[in-house]
C-alpha cells in the first residue's frame, strides 16, 4: 500500500488516478442522479418546475409538500394497504418455503430435480402470463378486490426464491445436530422448529424481507385484480397519477420519495443477505 502511494506521486500514475476517479464518479453519478432528481423535484414550488433551465437544487422551504401529499391524496390508505399485503405475503411465503426448503434440503425423493426445474421456470415467467388464469381463478373464488388475493398471487411469485434462500442455508447446517435431536425423541417437525429454524434466523429474516418487498414493489397483479380504490396499493396509486395531468409533478415526486424510502433503507441494511438470496435464487 505504502509503495503504491509513493508511486502515485509520479505524473503518469497521477493521471491514471484522475481518470479512474472520473470514471467512478460518472458511474456513481448515473446511479444517484435520478434519485437526487426525485428529491429536487419534490421540493420545488409548483411553478418553479416549469422553467428552463430547470432548478438544480432542492428548495429547503418546500418540505410542506409532504403535508400536502398526505392531505390531498389518499396515499396514507395506499401505504397501509401496501404494508398489509407486504406483511401477509412475507409471512405466507416464509411459512410455505420453510417446509418446502427443509424437504428439498433433507430428503431425497423422486421428482426432486423436476421440482427444482419447475421452481426456476416459474421465475422466468412474466407476471402477465399468469394474470388471465389467475383472474379467472380469483373470480371463481371471490378473491378479486381483496388484499388476500394479492397476498396469494404475490406469494406464488416470490415463494420459489424464498425456498432457495432457505434451502441453501439449511444445506449448511450439519445434519448431526438434527440427528441428536431425533435420538432424543423429537419428531421431524420438532427438530425443524426447535433446532433448524433458530439456527437459520438470518436466512429467515432475509426471506421475510424479500417477500415483503416483492409485494411492496408489485404492480401488475395489484393493477388487474383490485379495482376498488380504497384497496389500492401504493404502486397502483402512484402509477395512476401518470396520464391524468391533474396531479402536480412535485406531489407525484414526493409520493415517489415516500414510497421509495423504506425500500432503499431496507436494501441498504440487508444488502448482503438480499444479494446472496437473489443469486442463490438464480442458480440451480
Amino acid at each position: 500500500m505504502s509503495l503504491q502511494s509513493s508511486a502515485a506521486l509520479r505524473p503518469r500514475r497521477l493521471a491514471r488516478w484522475v481518470v479512474l476517479y472520473t470514471l467512478v464518479a460518472a458511474a456513481i453519478g448515473f446511479a444517484a442522479l435520478p434519485v437526487y432528481w426525485m428529491l429536487v423535484t419534490a421540493m420545488q414550488r409548483g411553478p418553479d418546475l416549469y422553467v428552463w433551465p430547470p432548478h438544480r437544487l432542492p428548495n429547503p422551504h418546500e418540505l410542506g409538500v409532504f403535508y400536502r401529499l398526505f392531505t390531498t391524496q389518499p396515499i396514507g390508505r395506499w401505504l397501509l394497504n401496501s404494508a398489509i399485503v407486504g406483511c401477509g405475503t412475507a409471512s405466507l411465503s416464509v411459512a410455505l418455503s420453510v417446509l418446502g426448503a427443509y424437504s428439498l434440503s433433507r430428503f431425497r425423493y423422486r421428482g426432486r430435480t423436476a421440482f427444482s426445474f419447475l421452481l426456476l421456470l416459474t421465475q422466468m415467467l412474466p407476471s402477465t402470463v399468469l394474470i388471465v388464469p389467475l383472474f379467472i381463478v380469483f373470480k371463481e373464488t371471490h378473491l378479486l378486490n381483496t388484499r388476500l388475493g394479492l397476498v396469494i398471487a404475490d406469494t406464488a411469485v416470490i415463494a420459489p426464491i424464498t425456498v432457495w434462500i432457505l434451502k441453501t442455508f439449511f444445506d449448511t447446517i450439519p445434519t448431526e445436530i438434527e440427528e441428536a435431536g431425533l435420538m432424543d425423541g423429537c419428531s421431524r417437525l420438532d427438530v425443524l422448529r426447535r433446532i433448524t429454524l433458530p439456527l437459520s434466523a438470518p436466512a429467515v429474516v432475509a426471506a421475510f424481507a424479500i417477500g415483503f418487498f416483492e409485494a411492496w414493489n408489485e404492480f401488475v397483479f395489484a393493477l388487474t385484480f383490485v379495482s376498488d380504490q380504497s384497496l389500492w396499493v401504493t404502486s397502483v396509486g402512484l402509477a395512476s397519477w401518470i396520464g391524468y395531468l391533474t396531479t402536480p409533478v412535485e406531489i407525484m415526486m414526493s409520493g415517489a420519495v415516500i414510497f421509495t424510502l423504506p425500500s432503499i433503507l431496507l436494501f441498504l441494511a440487508l444488502q448482503r443477505q438480499l444479494i446472496s438470496g437473489l443469486v442463490a435464487g438464480g442458480i440451480r
Binding site: 456513481i28 446511479a31 444517484a32 442522479l33 435520478p34 434519485v35 432528481w37 426525485m38 423535484t41 418546475l49 416549469y50 422553467v51 428552463w52 430547470p54 411492496w216 414493489n217 404492480f219 401504493t234 404502486s235 402512484l238 402509477a239 397519477w241 401518470i242 409533478v249 407525484m252 415526486m253 409520493g255 415517489a256 414510497f259 421509495t260 425500500s263 432503499i264 431496507l266 436494501f267 441498504l268 444488502q271
Partner: peptide, 29 residues
Amino acid sequence: RAILTVPWGTPLVASALIWYWMYDPQYGL
C-alpha cells in the same frame, strides 16, 4: 458502494415516475 445499492432498492413504479419526468420533452433533465 452504498450509492450503488440505491437504484435496485428503488421500486419499479417509482423509477418509472422519476424517469418519466426526466424524459419530459419540455422540462426534462
